[in-house]
Nucleic acid binder design. Sequence first.
DNA 1: CGGGATATGATAGTAATACTATTATATTTG
DNA 2: CAAATATAATAGTATTACTATCATATCCCG
Lengths: 222, 222
Amino acid sequence: MKPLSIHITIDPALYTKDPASSELGKKMVQKSIEMIDEMGFEKFTFKKLGTAIGSNESSIYRYFESKHSLLVYLVSWYWSWVEYKLVFATTNITDSREKLAKSIRILTENVTEDHAFSFVNEVILHKIIIAESSKAYHTKDVDTENQKGFYKTYKRVVQLVSDMVSEVNPDFEFPTMLISTLIEGVHHQRYFSEHLPALTNVTEGEDCVMRFYNQLVFNTIL
Amino acid sequence: MKPLSIHITIDPALYTKDPASSELGKKMVQKSIEMIDEMGFEKFTFKKLGTAIGSNESSIYRYFESKHSLLVYLVSWYWSWVEYKLVFATTNITDSREKLAKSIRILTENVTEDHAFSFVNEVILHKIIIAESSKAYHTKDVDTENQKGFYKTYKRVVQLVSDMVSEVNPDFEFPTMLISTLIEGVHHQRYFSEHLPALTNVTEGEDCVMRFYNQLVFNTIL
DNA sequence: CGGGATATGATAGTAATACTATTATATTTG
DNA sequence: CAAATATAATAGTATTACTATCATATCCCG
């Protein structure tokens, strides 16, 4: 009775023991997502997580090296999932523009339902990405972590969509900048609309984010 | 012999005692900028700052409520300074497009020299803004802090330039989104070009950032 | 010039954090 | 059923982000 089960593979560099390999590990990831959403990354601790899942702090450290690693794991999971959605949705589209438009749609749409094909609640994860993901790479250790491949999935998504931009207009000079601006921008706009509305034009309900970024991309490259 | 001395006024809500009011306070701000740049916000502490300026942890707490408040202070200082630059540079321009172009230039240019009109080193501060500023508002307390006016100067800058966008094209629906996308985007691109080059098209030396965002804004609104 | 106010410094203390290390107890597997 | 493995329990550490208290230095004002 389970729906289509997609396996999101995460680079072993991002964990000590694969959380997907045990019930306890899955519970850790699942509950950590809820807790980070509720209390914010700063106030979230492994000790609290342990208590919440009826386990122990020390057990969590056997899966993740640190709180920061867990965040990187979640972010990476998210981008793998987005990559999957992008590939799945564009694979049979031959028209470049349509393909790009579809991708922009996926990158800008709000995540409102969980497909439940894994132990990760995508709706809450999306909220975490909006509020906390920038902390994953705004560290003094970025360069080392980048070398270890911590941000590979994010880079892959940006690359994928940048290539579509180049397909639409091979002469456009800055496809990667455009797409990373779009992706980061979407997260900011969603965050602003909830907390700093003076920085956006998003009105509750209507989804301007998609319309705005669609316009932005196509007007810029054509 | 002092150059044109501009007074950047900071909202008293952002400090307990005005650091600009004493030599010690100025030293705190000055040194904190250097230290946050060198070791990153996470590893920076008031104790270390105290030692570095030959003062005491407790004295710093008399100026700033917390490490976080200090960051908010610095971010606010930065935006007040940018606002000053914007107003100064555009005040006599009558042509809307030229005014907007000039503003985009100011928002996208790299800060390479310190005007030394205050105790703040703008070059290093700019680096901090790129690497750490998002942490100022990615907190669980955003809403409370926003109500207290912590992000006023940032919002004012966005508003100022959004209005110029509307002046160029009154029918454009999303001026605020466009400008906050631009501002955040510039910081991201500069960060990426240094740490995650796969996410940008910025090549060392040449300044594509300005060109790209100029193109982006004008193509989007016209 | 002396005294009171104010600014700063020194010291101590606290609860919590982000871990590490060790040992004990389950649970699984061959 | 034993050995291997996973998990739990406990303790401990250095550091953090503060608060509180008291002492000392400096400044201002009559």
